Simulated assay, not measured.
Amino acid sequence: MPNPKATLLAATLTCAAAMTACAATPDSSLADELPGCYRASDATRYQAMQVELKADHTYYAEHQGHMGLWESGIGVWRQDGNKIDFSRDQVDDKSSLPSRLKIKHGPEGVTLHIPNGGILWEEPLTIRSCDGVGWQGTALNRKGAPPAIPAGEYTFQHRFAEHPSMPSVDMRVRFADGHITVTNTRPGTPFPLGVVAEGQLRWNGNVGRWIVARTPADVEATEVGACTEGPEVVDLEQRIYWTC
């Protein structure tokens, strides 16, 4: 006749082993949710980060820092429970990611939280589309410009590179046939009325910025915008025209 206590102990051990195995197995349904593009920006520090987690478990990441400095990296990612670990294969300049991000579920779906320390952010990385003008440097593992803005007239905000949080004026910006014209329509501002900048809208791959190019050399300039002697910069995604 079987021993009831032995039977109960065997069942308990079997259950405990099953629970341990389940706990050690990553959530496969979560892994299916993770591939995509995650973006965040800290408006108070004028920084932005975006990470594309690819379905083949490679990634592309980019960090745009204060005053337009940017860096990027590519490598391999893997899920470890409720965290993502990164193994960097290549980093331009310096690291653009911590080695690990925490996965959280929120009202907008999966978000990636950057641990405290190192680069500080006010927002988590939330999943958004990778399509657009947000990639400032090496776009999706290949050199080249992100999509330009469609032809037409837009309202851009002017910003001073030395005082990026200082309020300024709106500018009327027109794009047509690769040409850009920036016009001030408000009197009583630091700018004269009329056209304040004009040239070809060109992508400078050396610094990863759209510029107002006046000469062919501007496209190869290694210093642009801010208070350099290089061409002026326009941020097509944020609709900002930068000057010194």
Rank of each mutant, 00 (worst) to 15 (best):
Q79R: 13
T138K: 12
D92Y: 10
C37W: 06
E153F: 09
S129T: 11
D235T: 09
A176C: 10
T14V: 05
M1P: 11
P164R: 00
H63E: 03
E62G: 09
G137I: 02
V91S: 05
S28P: 03
S95D: 15
W70R: 06
G205R: 13
A18R: 04
T12K: 06
M171P: 01
G225M: 14
Q64A: 09
K143D: 04
V133F: 02
N3Y: 13
G194T: 07
T138A: 03
T7F: 12
P164W: 00
I103V: 10
E229G: 11
R100A: 13
Q90T: 10
G118I: 01
A16C: 05
P115K: 07
P167R: 10
T181A: 12
I119G: 01
A10H: 12
T228A: 02
D42Y: 07
P150M: 12
F86N: 11
Q50P: 07
D93E: 04
M166G: 09
R209L: 07
H63Q: 05
V91C: 03
R39P: 01
L193D: 10
A21V: 05
R45T: 10
T215S: 04
T215E: 13
I84F: 04
V196S: 01
W242K: 01
A40K: 10
S72W: 14
M166Y: 04
M1A: 10
D170V: 03
S28C: 15
C15S: 11
S99A: 02
